[in-house]
């Protein structure tokens, strides 16, 4: 991706308004955003992110977790984890905020055609994957077997519960959920997402693995997939770094030779592996 010039309008936030706000968990909401004055939202590639700025609080990179092209809206799923995200999660319908983007490189949907897919999400790693999963399901015959493993801290931390329920009922994918700990009222799996990989159904030689979540989880997923015979080059991870400019100017998100905002956030594992083992990168 070319680096924009300093007078490029793509780095200027546009005013958007919160059309709808859905409470996902105790600290996480999904915000449905439309441009002030209406009109379409730019096309985006699943896995890309926007920079959201609740006025007066700062700016933060949030992946696009959905869109409604007919109604011209983007959805962003935000967990309250700091000053800016806390302000975002408190925005009511009708509130205005700044949005710029979409930025970055998304999931390799085109090269995944005719392949099996193992998609692994941890915690808020599911929102950046949801648009890709929706695209795959909309063009289901173009892909092989689809296995999705979603891990969260507890059952009450699972997002998109109604959509997950619909995915579970489909017979053309397998969706497994696991949590780190649960009470007796949970009948699902408990344990790490990686524990579900040994019996996942895919042809390792014709599989892509996509993972998004905490870095240590993604590293374990990559190692488990490689142990099953998946070529490292067929593994893609969505990295999270402290992004500021989002266009490759400032270097805040640099990870080894990669700028996560510009070259990622979705990057092939071989480009990341040497740096995942380095402290303080």
């Amino acid at each position: 991706m070319a680096i924009p010039s300093r007078d490029d309008v793509s780095i200027v936030p546009r005013p958007f308004v919160v059309r709808d706000r859905v409470v996902e968990t105790g600290d996480t909401v999904s915000l449905d955003l439309v441009p002030v004055g209406g009109g379409p939202v730019p096309e985006f590639a699943p896995g890309q992110f926007n920079m959201l700025s609740p006025f007066g609080a700062g700016e933060v990179a949030i992946s696009i977790s959905g869109s409604d092209e007919e109604r011209g809206s983007w959805t962003h799923t935000v967990r309250s984890a700091g000053k800016v995200t806390d302000r975002l999660t408190r925005l009511p319908p009708g509130a205005t905020l700044g949005v710029r983007g979409p930025y970055g490189v998304g999931w390799p949907l085109a090269s995944a055609r005719d392949h099996d897919l193992l998609i692994v999400a941890g915690g808020l790693g599911l929102p950046p994957l949801r648009p890709a999963i929706r695209r795959i399901l909309a063009h289901r015959t173009e892909y092989g077997r689809v296995e999705i493993v979603y891990g969260a801290r507890t059952p009450s931390d699972l997002v998109f519960s109604s959509e997950i329920q619909r995915w579970r009922l489909r017979d053309d994918l397998r969706f497994q959920t696991t949590v780190d700990a649960a009470g007796r009222d949970w009948y699902g799996d408990v344990g790490l997402v990686t524990a579900r990989i040994p019996d996942a159904r895919f042809d390792p030689a014709r599989t892509q693995v996509w993972a998004c979540g905490p870095e240590i989880m993604m590293k374990a997923v990559a190692q488990a997939a490689i142990a099953r015979g998946v070529p490292p080059a067929a593994i893609y991870l969505s990295m999270e770094r402290n992004m500021k400019c989002a266009v490759g100017w400032c270097g805040h998100c640099q990870f080894g030779p990669e700028f996560v905002c510009r070259d990622g956030p979705v990057l092939p594992y071989p480009a990341l592996a040497p740096w995942l083992a380095v402290r303080e990168v």
Partner: peptide, 17 residues
């Protein structure tokens, strides 16, 4: 060994925001 490794990761509480 694998269960011990998994438990270590679980101890990190990686999904806490």
């Amino acid at each position: 060994g694998q269960r011990l490794a998994n438990t270590r990761i679980q101890l990190l509480d990686i999904h806490r925001g």
